[in-house]
Structure formats: structure tokens, C-alpha cells
């Protein structure tokens, strides 16, 4: 199968008043057509910044190096004009907060039609028909009327569905969703998760789901990439990751999800400590201070190894934790 998106040696650095932050450190991954990849990690793990870097959307003080080949073309070597041809049309991103990423002054119609006209070269009428179809696909009731409304007239769940509709408008090859359901109620979350799942399956689109919650992505991803302190610490199929995590951090992420389907044990298995200070990363394995399995070897930073076909881990432990 051909590779749709291939990221190689991605590094992201930020200049801050306190010093340099090396937010993403040598990230590699690839995405096949129709595949759903979950990128999982805590705040500050670099998961969102890596995606923004690929799309050329880093903040002013950020700089990225490395390659991100989309259908063979390196996105990171492109000028902003060249990138604009791909953003939204070939690769679309849905952000966490729908209220800040929709323009409050423009009707939904205006925001959707502009995208469709710009990227797909549709006329106004066709663009409108297409936009209404997309709203119907994400189950906005009465889309012909509601398309004329403004963002504040919709509930949080509906705004997020509109964001998805806009993301899908140009039928991109890759859909990147950054914590698309975090700010939402569980009932809305489950509706949306099912919706994204369905759309991705139907259109053979590839998707990257960014989240801190392994519970949410279990049912909707094919592969999982776990990031810690800017690096990949584990990679595998969703079944491998949940059934036999190889990195203590992954194990911790799975165990810290409170579960409804189990009888209560006394305490949740929290990961002790806090995410590391990216301004002053400790030497050796960056997870060492929070790891219950740390031993002498961990004073040396572990390399990424391949313990099995298609699996990666960055840990000195021989056996799974």
C-alpha cells in the first residue's frame, strides 16, 4: 500500500524568554490511506505542535525542521502559497475549541461557502448545496434554515459538528482532529466519535486523532502512537497497545482511565508526578522520575527499538511492565 503521509525527523523548537523549548524531538511516523492513527500524550508532549508544524501553523517563536511528505511532496519545504493549496483541501484540521475557531461575525453559510468556492472552484449555488449536504451528513437538523445562523445560535455539540462539516467539505485525504471531543459532554462525544468513524470509513479518508485520553480512541483507531516529552515512546496497533503495552507510560495511561465497566478498586492507578519541564529535561530517560520500573540503565536515554513487526518502544525494560 502506498504511504499517504510520511513524517521524518520532525523537530520543533520554541524560543521563549526562559530559554529554548525542544517541543518535538525527531518524530517519525507514516499514515496509510484509510488508516486512523491516534497520537496520545499529556499536555506538553508535543502532539499538537507536531501537527501544527506539518501544516506550517506554528506560532511566531517556533521553528520546525525535518520532512513531512504528503503523496511524495515535502510540505515543510513549501512556500506559504504552495501550502495553501493543500491546507483545507488535502489535509484538514479540526481544532479543540469550536467557539474560537469559528468566526462569530460570519454566518455558517458564509464560512462554509467560502471554503468550498476557494478550494473546489465551485460556484456560489453549488457551494451552498454542497455545504447543506455536509451539514446534513453531520446530522444538523433542518440544515437549509440553520445554515443562515451564526455560531452562537448553536450548542457546543452542534458547533463541533459544524467544524467537522467544514473539515470534511473538501473531502480531504487526511483529517487531523485535535482533541475533538474533550470539551463536550459524553453523550455528544459518543455521537461525534461515531460520526467521525463513519465518515472516515465511508470515504477511505485517513485520520489523525490527537488526545490525552486513551479511553476515547480505543474504539476508533487502527494504530496508536504514544508521545512523551516530545518523543515517540511507543507505537503499535490499537489491539497491541491495549492488550500488551510495552512502555510503563502507556501502561500508566491505560490504567489511569476510570472505568465504568469494572467494579471499583480502591484507588485509581495514577501516574505519579507531573509532565516534565520542557525547559530543563532530566538526563537519561525523560520518564524515569515518574516510572515505577526505573533501574540503573535508565540513566542513559533509551533508543527507539523494534521489539516486533510494526511495533516500536523507547524503554530499557526487557519485559512488558
Amino acid at each position: 500500500m502506498s504511504v499517504l503521509l510520511e513524517v521524518n525527523g520532525l523537530d520543533v523548537r520554541f524560543e521563549t524568554p526562559e530559554g529554548e523549548v525542544h517541543a518535538v524531538r525527531g518524530l517519525n511516523f507514516s499514515l496509510q490511506p484509510g488508516e486512523t492513527l491516534a497520537i496520545v500524550g499529556e499536555s506538553g508532549s508535543g502532539k499538537s505542535q507536531a501537527m501544527l508544524a506539518i501544516l506550517g501553523l506554528l506560532a511566531e517563536n517556533g521553528a520546525a525542521t525535518g520532512q513531512a511528505r504528503f503523496k511524495g511532496e515535502d510540505l515543510m519545504a513549501m512556500t506559504p502559497q504552495e501550502l495553501n493549496r493543500h491546507r483545507g483541501r488535502d489535509i484538514a484540521m479540526i481544532f479543540q475549541d469550536p467557539m474560537t475557531s469559528l468566526n462569530p461575525y460570519l454566518s455558517i453559510e458564509r464560512q462554509m461557502i467560502e471554503v468550498a468556492m476557494h478550494h473546489q472552484g465551485l460556484g456560489r449555488r453549488e457551494a451552498r448545496t454542497h455545504a447543506i449536504e455536509m451539514l446534513r451528513a453531520v446530522r444538523i437538523p433542518d440544515p437549509e434554515t440553520r445554515i443562515r445562523q451564526y455560531p452562537h445560535e448553536f450548542s457546543g455539540g452542534m458547533r463541533q459538528r459544524i467544524m467537522i462539516a467544514i473539515g470534511l467539505l473538501c473531502e480531504p485525504d487526511v483529517l487531523i482532529a485535535d482533541e475533538p471531543t474533550t470539551a463536550l459532554d459524553v453523550t455528544v462525544q459518543s455521537q461525534l466519535a461515531a460520526l467521525v468513524d463513519e465518515v472516515v470509513a465511508r470515504s477511505n479518508m485517513a485520520a489523525i486523532l490527537i488526545t490525552h485520553d486513551l479511553g476515547v480512541v480505543a474504539g476508533m483507531s487502527d494504530r496508536v502512537l504514544v508521545m512523551y516529552a516530545g518523543e515517540v515512546v511507543e507505537y503499535g496497533t490499537v489491539e497491541q497497545i491495549y492488550a500488551q503495552p510495552l512502555h510503563p507510560y502507556t501502561r500508566g495511561l491505560i490504567d489511569s482511565v476510570p472505568r465504568l465497566d469494572r467494579e471499583d478498586h480502591e484507588a485509581l492507578h495514577a501516574i505519579p508526578g507531573n509532565p516534565p519541564n520542557m525547559l530543563a529535561l532530566p538526563p537519561g530517560c525523560s520518564f524515569r522520575e515518574r516510572c515505577a520500573h526505573a533501574f540503573e540503565a535508565c540513566a542513559e536515554a533509551p533508543e527507539l527499538s523494534e521489539p516486533g513487526e510494526g511495533r516500536l518502544k523507547r524503554c530499557h525494560l526487557e519485559k512488558a511492565p
Partner: peptide, 13 residues
């Protein structure tokens, strides 16, 4: 509520 287990796939829907 999502179940953190791929075996429970699509149950959430």
C-alpha cells in the same frame, strides 16, 4: 461512556 478497550469497539456508538 467510551470503554478503553478495542474489543468494545463501536459499542460506544
Amino acid at each position: 461512556v467510551p470503554i478503553p478497550d478495542p474489543a468494545a469497539r463501536r459499542r460506544t456508538a
